[in-house]
Simulated scan of single mutants.
Amino acid sequence: MGPWPASASSAELRNPAGGSRAVPQARLAWPLSPVPVVTKYFDAPETPYGAGHRGVDLAAVPGQDVLAADAGVVVFAGLVAGRPVISVDHDGGLRTTYEPVEPKVAVGDQVYRGQVLGSVLAGHPGCAIAACLHWGVRRGDEYVDPLALTGEVGEFRLKPWGGGP
């Protein structure tokens, strides 16, 4: 897979295993509109098969439209472990995945940024509300934080808090 286009602005994505990779800012659009509340954040696994959360969970309502985060080709629309999943390949080696989603697209369909891919279904494990959309992104074999590719998230530093007023 080739490098990102030279014209793209970039930010650093930090890999917990060490190193960093430049990726374009605001490369992807949000898959839900309006911009949703994040109910569970990305937690990169330390090893390829280790524990972690390989995407983000976004607050949704059952039946809400799921939108393509960028132009691409649908490479999967079916069941994984009994849950309906859609995966889309994009230029630059990115693949976005959305679940649980009732698909309105089929494998091989070309989609445009913002196109409806399907609708959110209730029943995502660990979702404390009526429905959550799990949104994942990979570049090659590496999972990356989808929020870092929306241009909405920067680097955060936590300060110690003494618990006082």
Rank of each mutant, 00 (worst) to 15 (best):
V107S: 04
G108C: 04
Y112W: 12
G108V: 10
A71Y: 04
P100F: 07
R113C: 03
R113H: 05
Y98F: 10
D89K: 15
D109T: 08
G92D: 03
G82Y: 09
G72H: 04
D70Q: 14
V107I: 14
F76M: 04
V111E: 05
Q115W: 09
I129N: 12
D89E: 15
E102V: 09
G78T: 07
G92Y: 08
R95K: 08
V80E: 06
L117V: 01
C127F: 04
C127L: 09
V120D: 00
P125R: 14
V111M: 08
D89F: 01
V88Q: 01
V111W: 01
L94M: 10
G92L: 07
A122M: 10
A71P: 02
R83I: 02
R113F: 00
R113G: 00
G72K: 06
V116D: 04
V74W: 04
G108E: 05
G93H: 08
E99Y: 09
V74F: 06
P103S: 03
A77T: 07
A71R: 14
D109Q: 11
P103H: 03
D109H: 12
A71E: 08
Y98G: 07
E99K: 14
L117C: 02
G82Q: 11
E102K: 15
K104D: 11
V101E: 00
T96R: 06
P125L: 08
G108D: 07
Q110A: 14
G114N: 02
L94R: 06
A77F: 04
H90D: 00
G82M: 06
F76D: 05
R95E: 00
V80F: 03
G72Y: 02
G123W: 13
R83A: 02
V88C: 02
R95T: 14
E102T: 12
Y112A: 14
D91I: 06
P100L: 04
G78W: 07
V73I: 12
I129Y: 10
P84M: 10
I129L: 13
I86Q: 01
A128N: 11
H124V: 01
D70T: 07
V74Y: 03
Q110C: 11
R83E: 00
A71V: 00
Y112H: 13
V107E: 11
